[in-house]
Design a protein around this nucleic acid. Structure first.
Lengths: 345, 345
DNA sequence: ACGGCACGCGAGAGCGCTCTCACCAGGCCG
DNA sequence: CGGCCTGGTGAGAGCGCTCTCGCGTGCCGT
């Protein structure tokens, strides 16, 4: 807990290098149009003095902050409980760091915080925002969009976004689900059940759609609604066994629920995968690799999603590829998933 | 992706309210010493114009940022893989938000990033830092301390800190370990083994110390070194069974390793807890509750740790309890742990 | 040889805010 | 009834930086 020493200013560096403030500024910001001799002198002075530009002063005039807000809505929910969040953040962080941007984290708890976040974003403290919001009825995305801050969403927002373009990055939930179910079908399974996630989240809804794409006229009793939690998975599995004792495969909308299902199946005396094949979603390593048997699951590249979100946002901010018409208004990206085969299917 | 509209300035509000900039500033910052009539007028003008203070301009003069950096070193390691991180962050976020501070997240990957972080902190962009660094030999804590930024560490840093006071928040790892081992002893177990965490982390070392406190002259073969991962736990458990087939209890330094140990014990035909009792550490719910049998473990209040770190830092920054001599220089805090009994011991 | 034209550099005007200080009322004391 | 405080207000000087100008210098063309 020490006090900050008085920091040298541009003026000080200028004096030491025997040039004007303007020249120091030029050097510090790239040094174009300054003779090499002077550049050298200034660099030396900067080093000797340990000069670091005052970001506040700079932002005041440039109106740029080189900072991006990451908004995570309602972290009580699943995002926060699993490594998802950490991985996305890591991807985001890497990308932002590579472009010298800071990451300002805003976590919201409940509706009261929405206003706070909106105010902060509208306050122009950051150049843009990356927003994670899971629930269909979450008012946050719209609030943010209205704040007029360039934004990229993590996961397809439930909200349709007027006519303004909403940019998001998501996994191919539907396609991944299709792959999973097709794999089960390819194994010769015919009574393939689905344990859904919380259906007020687009990811859960999309995975259900993927399931239906393949199981075109599936027995509706083969679909059990749950909530992405292990306990929910257990409950759903019990329901399924009761309704359809002949079930021979289960596609759970995430690994946590799949692990719950696995437990119930074992309790009921079913062998996995012999009697019932099980597939999860996410490829949450700590869970998927530790279940018995190890879980076959649909992997999504979480870290890459984060990185991509940041990249899209920065591109939109003209941080890279200034014009060229190339990335003027970036559009949403849906990342592919891959099926990871382990023991359970 | 919309552009930010031109934001009203203090001047504009002043004009509209028919007062001077100074008065508006006073009102915005608490409004002491301004007649109620004027306060009212200014508030109205602020609302009508949607005025939000420009933080950059404010920081420029106040030299305060109302922002705190959270530095997470080497997130490849365990912090990042489990909900730990998310929970701490949540605690930190809550506390910071309550005091109107922003959270700037800095994740470092490898040594190269150290300099970057140090530079950032030294750059005076934030008022203080909360630092998570796990490894004994990590140079980061020292770098940061030298940057002269008020800092609170998460977990006891391995580094002793010259003579400057190092402030940290930690769980009572040693005490928690003692409780666990005593509990096992209380169950009548005599051949109590310990699976350590990565011993280059203070938490692992402290838990080992706690184990030794109780098992004063334990058979050294009862101690197996591992690394906090499930695979490490499995390996260690196998070693233990080989070295000491008569082992009747295991205290693992975290839940992940305990889950691995559980698997190996089952494979070997041992019943838990009948033949071998098992205790973990952390109380990572998704793991501890899902093992078979559910894991008895030592709980630490992660979120509270985060909250406390933030509180200590803010207090050190004079954000609360300005003088009074009360919290002038906050000192480290070690939070108690509690034993959570489930099925495994 | 002289006018023009780069190019390199410095002077200076702000960016939007805070904060000190001087000023002007009143109300109080002597 | 005048001097003096006191509390409320406004004027103005910066905080450290960027960026536009305009002024020199050296170099080219004719």
């Amino acid at each position: 807990m020490t006090d900050t020493a008085p920091r040298p200013t541009l003026e000080a560096v200028a004096a030491r290098a025997g040039v004007s403030r303007a020249t120091v500024s030029r050097v510090v910001n790239g040094g174009d149009g300054v003779r090499d001799i002077l550049v050298e002198r200034v660099r030396k002075a900067v080093d000797e003095l340990g000069y670091v530009p005052n970001q506040a002063a700079r932002s005041l005039v440039t109106r740029r902050h080189d900072a991006v807000a990451v908004v995570v809505a309602e972290p009580e929910t699943r995002v926060f409980a699993d490594p998802f969040f950490a991985l996305q953040l890591r991807g985001i962080s890497k990308e932002l760091t590579a472009h010298d941007n800071q990451l300002v984290l805003l976590l919201t708890e409940g509706r009261d915080d929405h206003a706070r976040v909106a105010r902060y974003l509208a306050g122009g403290h950051v150049d843009g925002a990356l927003v994670f919001s899971l629930h269909l009825d979450d008012p946050l995305p719209e609030l943010i969009q209205r704040a007029g801050v360039p934004t990229v969403f993590g996961g397809r927002p439930g909200w349709s976004g007027d006519r303004r373009e909403v940019v998001y990055v998501d996994s191919d939930n539907r396609g991944g689900a299709r792959d999973a179910v097709r794999h089960l079908a390819g194994l010769g399974r015919t009574r393939i059940a689905h344990i859904t996630g919380a259906l007020d989240q687009t990811s859960a809804a999309d995975r259900l759609d993927g399931y239906r794409d393949v199981m075109v006229d599936a027995d509706p009793r083969l679909i059990a609604e749950a909530d992405f939690t292990p306990a929910g998975g257990e409950r759903a599995m019990r329901e399924l066994l009761e309704r359809c004792p002949d079930v021979d495969a289960v596609f759970a909308a995430n690994d946590l629920m799949a692990s719950g299902a696995l437990r119930v199946l074992r309790e009921s005396g079913r062998r996995v995968p012999d009697d019932v094949a099980v597939i999860g979603f996410d490829d949450m390593r700590p869970v998927a690799e530790q279940t018995d048997p190890p879980l076959t699951t649909v992997r999504q590249d979480i870290e890459e999603m984060g990185r991509l979100m940041a990249r899209l946002l920065l591109r939109g901010l003209d941080r890279e590829a200034p014009r060229e018409g190339v990335g003027a208004t970036p559009s949403s990206v849906v990342l592919p998933t891959t099926l990871v085969r382990r023991g359970s299917a």
